[in-house]
Amino acid sequence: MSTGPYNYSYIFKYIIIGDMGVGKSCLLHQFTEKKFMADCPHTIGVEFGTRIIEVSGQKIKLQIWDTAGQERFRAVTRSYYRGAAGALMVYDITRRSTYNHLSSWLTDTRNLTNPSTVIFLIGNKCDLEGQRDVTYEEASKFAEENGLLFVEASAKTGDNVEEAFLETAKKIYQSIQDGRLDLNAAESGVQHKPSQPGRNNLSNDQQANKDNCAC
């Protein structure tokens, strides 16, 4: 019995949001499978993906909730904001309407997540430079004004996909280190995985773990 994939110390929960057709599921697929899914079906309700990454020497399991962008699923997807440590807010750089809706997605995110949730803005489909409808500068400005991390990415080529997911994790991990994110809070979106037998981990205690990480 291999315990390999279970050697991680934290679980971070992510949610991916944004208008329909911006490429949320493709971003997830690219991140978890490193492949582009050409004929991606509409997401019904919610999909799920997971991958283990490493941040500052800590193995972290990302549990990613990929929500349906269609308006009719808004109600069911809203519940997934609860307990998300990271929110990836996606728009399509070739369709201005998806960019214009960002403020409503942002309002939802701010209302339904806790203040420590890291919000990352992703302008997807940056491989389609010729059809660009939203400039990098204005999106970058929007992100800055709202305190969001921002990157343009392409689920097709894989450009910046990895970076977006990892940067979010780093930011969350930083919050834990700073003590801004309380692991014991019910809806923090971060779980600390109890140590596995045989691993050299003396305590499950958050404080003790912090000390371990610091050195």
Partner: peptide, 10 residues
């Protein structure tokens, strides 16, 4: 059937 369309993050 399809409970995920009726119940969210449970």
């Amino acid at each position: 059937n399809d409970l995920h369309r009726k119940i969210g993050n449970i």
